[in-house]
């Protein structure tokens, strides 16, 4: 039986949930509304327009930045997935001591503050004589992506049964074939979620890109930063809205599509989670 006190408590709780929700979403909603307003003023509704979206798609700087962002995210995620998966397999078969040392190094980019990672990479590129530009952003992104791939693949590897792999070899399969036919299907979900995670981390990064990019090249994040400091244009609102809706759709698919067995919410948790026990 529900007493009045319980009911009152529930109302207070709902009120609190709604309050936090407004706090979290009101600013984003404001951006979205302003992106459709036919007036440069932030306080007056100037009628519905798609003008800013048109301006955005026509702007060559925004489109170039979008292209850079997507290429870097895809390439860095792909390379990080290959290097990271190979590393995870090797680490998994190592003795405890080297394993601990390597996992300790793996942790560094995740634990360190982005600003320190960014400037340390910038110093290294200059010391190695690599001029800052597209390649340096790509290398930097691969560097911070690999640990996320290793983190996603390791738990899956631990679940695999070593005897199955050995059985395949006993039956005459060469090691490479035995791996791809027997082990790889088992760790594939981990590899895929590692790739997706790396892709999103790369899309989202600003600080490390800020320090490792050269003049004349921008990703969406660095473009937004430089534009905002010069004064916000409504086309930035249009861009924000598109990014938000894209992220929303991607997350809903990964989290709620029944056949999609990727640990979506877990990914959400992993993101920016700086420390993970996985040994």
């Amino acid at each position: 039986m529900k007493t009045t006190k319980d009911r009152l408590k529930r109302i207070v709780e709902n009120f609190y949930l709604v309050l936090i929700m407004i706090f979290l979403y009101a600013p984003i909603a404001t951006l979205m509304v302003l992106s459709f307003s036919n007036s440069k003023s932030r306080t007056q509704w100037g009628g519905f327009t798609l003008r800013w979206y048109g301006e955005m798609f026509e702007s060559s700087t925004i489109m170039a930045a979008l292209q850079n962002t997507l290429i870097i995210a895809f390439a860095s995620a792909l390379i990080a997935t290959v290097i990271g998966t190979a590393a995870a397999i090797a680490i998994n078969s190592m003795k405890p001591l080297p394993k601990t040392v390597i996992m300790g190094i793996t942790n560094i980019p995740m634990l360190n503050a982005d600003i320190v990672t960014g400037i340390s990479l910038m110093l290294a590129f200059i010391a190695f004589g690599i001029s800052l530009g597209f390649e340096t952003i790509l290398i930097a992104h691969i560097t911070f992506n690999i640990p996320y791939v290793i983190l996603s693949v390791m738990p899956k590897l631990k679940q695999t049964n070593k005897s199955v792999y050995e059985a395949a070899m006993d039956l005459g399969a060469p090691p490479v074939q035995a791996f791809f036919k027997v082990v790889f299907p088992d760790i594939l979900p981990g590899v895929l979620s590692g790739f997706l995670l790396a892709f999103t981390m790369s899309l989202d990064d600003f600080i490390i890109t800020h320090f490792t990019k050269g003049a004349g090249i921008n990703t969406l994040s660095t473009l937004i930063y430089s534009e905002v400091r010069r004064g916000i244009k409504p086309s930035m609102y249009a861009l924000s809205t598109i990014i938000f809706v894209t992220v929303l759709i991607l997350l809903i698919i990964t989290n709620f599509a029944p056949h999609w067995k990727l640990p979506g919410i877990c990914l959400t948790g992993l993101k920016n989670h700086r420390r993970q026990e996985y040994l």
Binding site: P27, I28, L31, L203, D204, F206, S221, I224, V247
Partner: peptide, 10 residues
């Protein structure tokens, strides 16, 4: 998951 520059911009 929102780009944090956009959140600050908001």
């Amino acid at each position: 998951w929102m780009n944090f520059l956009l959140r600050t911009l908001a």
